[in-house]
């Protein structure tokens, strides 16, 4: 078989089964496979492994860094919120204080005004009473005079006792104007 490889192939046989070519194929397979193994395992694979590892490390590092920044941002937000809350509380305190002050002042002013109104009212009442008493006295005098004159002209001769006239007038005044 080793002697006529081409006859075997040319006559339609499978070149794969031409065993005379096997030693050469196997020899060159071993040589080329060994060469490829040497190239890949010595020159390529360690470098690729390193690159992949470096990339993974970098990604992990970047993720760590991003996590750190996120934490920092969260802290900053918290601090901001705390500052905002304290400022709000401060503002409320100031507003409350101002409101209380205004209330006190207003209460004082109201009390003062009330007192002044009270005083003025009392004064007026007194004056009204004095005017009323005065008017009453004058009316009494006028009534007595008119009654005396009327009685002198129209009443019985000799007149009527002055005290009687005065008593009748006071009774009448009392009845008309009250106490």
């Amino acid at each position: 078989m080793a002697g006529e490889p081409h006859e075997a192939a040319a006559s339609g046989g499978l070149p794969q089964l031409d065993f005379s070519t096997w030693p050469s194929q196997i020899f060159w397979l071993v040589v080329s496979f060994g060469a490829l193994y040497f190239i890949l395992s010595r020159l390529a694979l360690p470098k690729i492994a390193e690159t992949l590892q470096a990339r993974q490390d970098q990604i992990a590092g970047d993720l760590d860094l991003a996590g750190e920044f996120e934490q920092k941002a969260k802290e900053a937000e918290e601090a901001y919120n705390a500052a905002l809350a304290s400022a709000r509380a401060e503002a409320r305190k100031i507003a409350d204080k101002t409101q209380a002050e205004i209330k006190t002042q207003m209460d004082a002013a109201m009390a003062e005004a009330d007192a002044r109104i009270e005083a003025r009212a009392t004064e007026s009442t007194t004056r009204i009473a004095a005017i009323r008493d005065d008017a009453r006295a004058q009316a009494t005098t006028v009534a007595e005079d008119i009654a005396g004159a009327l009685i002198a002209k129209l009443g019985p001769a000799g007149g009527v006792d002055a005290s009687a006239i005065s008593g009748a007038v006071s009774t009448e005044i009392e009845r008309r104007f009250g106490g």
Binding site: T21, S24, W28
Partner: peptide
Amino acid sequence: AVELFSYTNSS
């Protein structure tokens, strides 16, 4: 003929 060390199209 293809010998052991023959450099062929396969090689």
